[in-house]
Design a protein around this nucleic acid. Structure first.
Lengths: 102, 102
DNA sequence: AATTATATTCTATAGTTATCGAACTATCAA
DNA sequence: TTGATAGTTCGATAACTATAGAATATAATT
């Protein structure tokens, strides 16, 4: 998949968005991106293999939750915050709170 | 599973909640319950078989999104609104908006 | 050009899940 | 007690998915 792939989040079925967030590994990636804004694939630490992580990045990009940007040999990942906020207001805040419980 | 089963939504992993919402049939059930407040299993119309629907009700109850109440031969389903709002503020409103786009 | 670094894609597999029909349970009514 | 109603559970299966290793791709470096 091209790094520039960027589907219209407004037309993405909600169940697809929830499906993407319904895996603990992918949810963790999203929560990391809430804090870090932009990270390279390699910085997304996990005991899982690179190919598995790449699979999860792909799922998140396919449903429109993240975007990818190539620079040199690295690919940088970030959330599509504005689009997410428009489709599911409050979601990112709720996820952020869940990362840092009181 | 007993109709009274009612896990603590505060301690349910977020990924489990999203997983439950990540199926189009289950999401539709939840969206119906936003509008209807309480319905019997049979009122939850679908082309799918009764056993399949029962499976989806079970998943939604197991993650704590809905509750069941038996009365006569019927079982009535409803959302656990207060608990959901506490865990994921804005979610139900977002789902409601998605049901009735502007 | 050869090497290194970063990440994706391909192929395979083990595990999971959505689906259905049949069997079962519980309740109410006749 | 017989039958009808409403729904769950069981057993089977086809489809899907998370995972990993091997192969591939691209870009920077030496």
């Amino acid at each position: 998949m091209k790094a520039s792939y960027r589907p219209d989040l407004k037309r993405m079925p909600l169940s697809s968005l929830f499906y993407a967030l319904g895996d603990p590994v992918r949810l963790k990636i999203v929560q990391t991106l809430i804090e870090q804004n932009e990270i390279s694939c390699g910085e997304c630490k996990s005991p899982l293999s690179k190919s598995t992580m790449s699979h999860h990045f792909k799922v998140l990009q396919q449903v429109g939750l993240i975007q990818r940007r190539g620079e040199g040999t690295s690919h940088y990942l970030s959330l599509r915050r504005a689009e997410i906020d428009r489709r599911l207001p409050g979601l990112l805040e709720a996820l952020q709170r869940a990362t840092h419980p009181l």
